[in-house]
């Protein structure tokens, strides 16, 4: 299956590349959008191959990243519009989706998007309990209850524990 980035005949004339997700979906992307990812840029510089296979990014995440890259490669859009696109892009996304996105942007080295997603994740996390974060990141608590109590006592900071959320 080939999905274009829907920019019509104008960009179709330009050079484009096909990016394949780990689950086999293929996306047609203009080269100007692809090179906004430092990793893709390197791959394109090294070989003439017009088909790039990404073995660790699934199709849904890749589709989102490509939508982002295409928007940012569009010279017709002002910086203000791009900024509001970025805000729209992460708003309302579930934490699960953001996790895959942050991983993909790290792999593809799309620094700007990586920071936008990281900021959104931090905004969601800021009033959460330790238990919520452990669950979401699937992190095993490697402190024993005694060790955790001891380190919390020895390394106490200034503020009261505030109202925190567990959902």
């Amino acid at each position: 299956m080939v999905t274009t980035d829907e920019k019509g005949p104008l960009t179709a004339k330009k050079k484009s590349v096909i990016i394949r997700s780990c689950d086999g979906d293929e996306f047609l992307v203009s080269e100007s959008a692809a090179v906004l990812s430092t990793s893709l840029k390197k791959i394109l510089e090294e070989k003439e191959d017009r088909l790039i296979h990404l073995s660790d990014i699934d199709n849904k995440t890749l589709a989102m990243v490509i939508a982002y890259l295409s928007t940012h490669a569009d010279d017709g859009l002002s910086d203000d519009l791009k900024r509001s696109f970025d805000q729209e892009f992460v708003s309302g996304k579930e934490f699960d989706v953001l996790k895959y996105l942050v991983l993909a942007t790290d792999t593809l080295q799309v620094t700007c998007l990586c920071y936008t997603v990281a900021k959104k994740m931090a905004d969601i996390m800021k009033n959460k309990l330790v238990e919520w974060v452990r669950r979401e990141f699937d992190i095993q608590n490697d402190y024993t209850p005694e060790a955790e109590a001891e380190i919390r006592r020895l390394d106490a900071w200034a503020w009261d524990d505030r109202q925190l959320e567990d959902d």
Binding site: M125, N127, L129, I139, N141, Y143, I151, W159, D161
Partner: peptide
Amino acid sequence: LPIESLQTLRFVC
């Protein structure tokens, strides 16, 4: 994260 959140979340692991 704001510094107040780090106060609790640094103990995740």
